[in-house]
Design a protein around this nucleic acid. Structure first.
Length: 561
DNA sequence: ATTAGGG
DNA sequence: CCCTAAT
């Protein structure tokens, strides 16, 4: 008579998929609510009413899900709902895209409703990414040749860590000394569980409890080696920079949101609220079966992650990630992290708190600097040059992975090193560099220096793209080796590298005529330039001067800057 | 001579 | 970067 089914969601949530996952369902029982992605396990009784599913029922569903190797999976959610991660990339794509356009979706809605919450850097970035030619791009922003920290508002926002929800967090003070799970009684295990995940559980299955605890701890420390470590079965919390610590703590240990990375952007409070709202909306109230969903979904969630974690990056992935030019690597990262994001569409609103990490918050939103995949990806020299996908930037997840941040930094420094080497070596036209192997290096290859790039950008801004000879003559008078063609090429590369998709020449005829007029510099390019500038500012002069100690003060480089 | 684009 | 077609 009674059928256990899933349930609530709106059209946005691709109900069909969840149905497929659960196998048995009664579509007619679907009830729309405001939350797009939270599903709750309920039972439909004879009268058609929805009754919260019992623990056993949830477990049954869990089993079904475990057997189901499909893309669909249940993701643990707080309280009493089971969240169905439909893994709908398109949906998210669209969602985020819309969000970036300022449409009234959840993601952006929060900002409006919570003026106190700092602006979402990602949102900002996305906006600019979507509209590369937006006039908002302050041209003056590239005037940062020195070391001065940019002060304009490009993507820079001084967002600071904001308050994070504080509902039921793990309390490690509750963990006494070492943990020997095998020796613990059910009750003790439950307490440990609580200490680990910050929430009660009524599960009596020792095996499950142990596994859950271990996985929770292990994964947590894996994910965030900077914050938590498991030592002799004990949990040790390492001190760290406040922001990072906080963020990562949330990421790794917050059980309310599925216990890990999947929910990095979702502070407990947010989730709680959503859950509550949801419950209220459906008129079911919040019963005492909180462990239910936990039991099932979290399990699936954890296991899934565990599986994912093991997977090593493919060669292509490594190559592209290492390709330096941020955008590409990001696309890859996304694939590894994407699921986390997709898993919590409804909680994207909570992103903000975790964002401000790093020097000035800027790095956090750098495209390839983060991913939270926790997978070590070695650096390899760039090999292939592929054009990056267009809109992936909108999917960039926010995390606070020190690891990746470091990688990015190193990468940039490397680039800078080469760059400066040439700059200092400026005199004769770099001719063939006889490689040890005997093969000749490229004939005239002179990497663009920051100052050159800046000049180029300036020139384009002033005279317009296309006026290469003009720019060459006026802005590059002292650079004999840069031909107008070079300028053109470089500009083209900058555009590519910055993802600038030229404005579709559709009905915009008015604009086409202005092609060679003074144009606003695409924001992405400004970003890139600034990126270079910042990186340069961070490397002490001695660093680059050492290699070419011969000509330090008198060579052309001094003229350049 | 310059530009735009493909290689 | 180089080469080349087109202007």
């Amino acid at each position: 008579m009674e059928t256990v089914v899933d349930v609530v969601g709106n059209e946005e949530a691709k109900v069909e998929e969840s149905e497929a996952a659960i196998n048995k369902i009664t579509p007619t029982s679907l009830q729309k609510i405001s939350d797009p992605v939270v599903y709750q396990l309920v039972r439909v009784d004879g009268n058609g009413r929805l009754v919260p599913a019992t623990e056993d029922e949830v477990m049954a569903v869990e089993d079904l899900l475990e057997d189901d190797k499909s893309e669909n999976r249940f993701v643990s959610n707080s309280g009493q709902t089971v969240e169905c991660n439909t893994n709908c990339r398109h949906d998210l794509d669209e969602l985020q895209f819309k969000a970036s356009e300022g449409l009234p979706l959840d993601i952006v809605k929060l900002d409006a409703e919570n003026p106190n919450v700092p602006p979402n850097p990602v949102a900002d970035f996305e906006k600019q990414s979507v509209s590369p030619w937006a006039p908002t791009a302050d041209y003056g922003s590239i005037q940062l040749e020195g070391s001065s920290k940019p002060s304009n508002g490009l993507v820079e926002n001084g967002t600071s860590t904001s308050a994070v929800g504080t509902s039921s967090k793990p309390d490690f003070s509750m963990l006494k000394g070492e943990i020997h799970l095998d020796n613990l009684t059910v009750k003790e295990l439950q307490e440990t569980f609580k200490a680990t995940f910050g929430r009660e559980t009524s599960v009596k299955d020792k095996q499950w409890l142990k596994r859950r605890i271990v996985m929770g701890l292990t994964n947590s420390s894996d994910f965030s080696t900077t914050t938590l470590v498991i030592k002799d079965n004990g949990v040790v919390k390492k001190g760290k920079e406040e922001t990072c610590n906080r963020a990562e703590h949330n990421i790794s240990m917050d059980p309310e949101v599925g216990s890990t990375s999947e929910n990095l952007e979702s502070p407990p409070s947010c989730h709680d609220n959503q859950t509550e709202n949801h419950s209220n909306a459906t008129g079911m109230g919040s019963q005492n079966y909180s462990m239910v969903d936990n039991y099932g979904s979290e399990d699936a969630n954890t296991e899934q992650r565990a599986t994912k974690r093991v997977r090593k990056p493919t060669r292509r992935y490594i190559e592209e990630l290492s390709e330096g030019e941020s955008r590409d690597s990001c696309a890859k990262l996304i694939s590894s992290v994407g699921n986390h994001v997709y898993g919590q569409p409804s909680t994207n609103v909570c992103v903000t708190p975790v964002q401000k990490v790093g020097l000035d918050g800027r790095w956090l939103i750098r495209r390839d600097s983060f991913g939270g995949s926790g997978v070590q990806v070695p650096y390899v020299s760039r090999i292939r040059r592929s054009r990056p996908r267009e809109n992936f930037m909108t999917l960039v997840p926010i995390t606070s992975s020190d690891k990746l941040y470091t990688e990015r930094k190193v990468e940039l420094e490397k680039e800078l090193k080469n760059l400066e080497s040439y700059e200092n070596n400026s005199d004769d036209d770099v001719v063939t560099m006889p490689a040890a192997s005997g093969r000749m290096r490229r004939k005239h290859h002179r990497p663009w220096t920051l100052s050159e790039v800046v000049k180029l950008v300036e020139g384009v801004a002033k005279y317009g793209a296309g006026r290469w000879s003009e720019i060459k003559r006026l802005a590059f008078a002292s650079y004999s080796y840069r031909t107008s063609v070079d300028l053109k090429d470089k500009w083209r590369n900058l555009l590519r590298a910055s993802f600038v998709q030229l404005p579709a020449e559709k009905g915009m005829q008015v604009q086409s005529s202005r092609k060679h007029a003074s144009i606003p510099i695409p924001a992405p390019i400004l970003l890139r330039v600034r990126e270079l500038a910042e990186m340069q500012a961070q490397v002490p002069p001695s660093f680059s001067a050492s290699k070419f100690a011969g000509h330090t003060g008198s060579d052309r480089s001094s003229v350049h800057e």
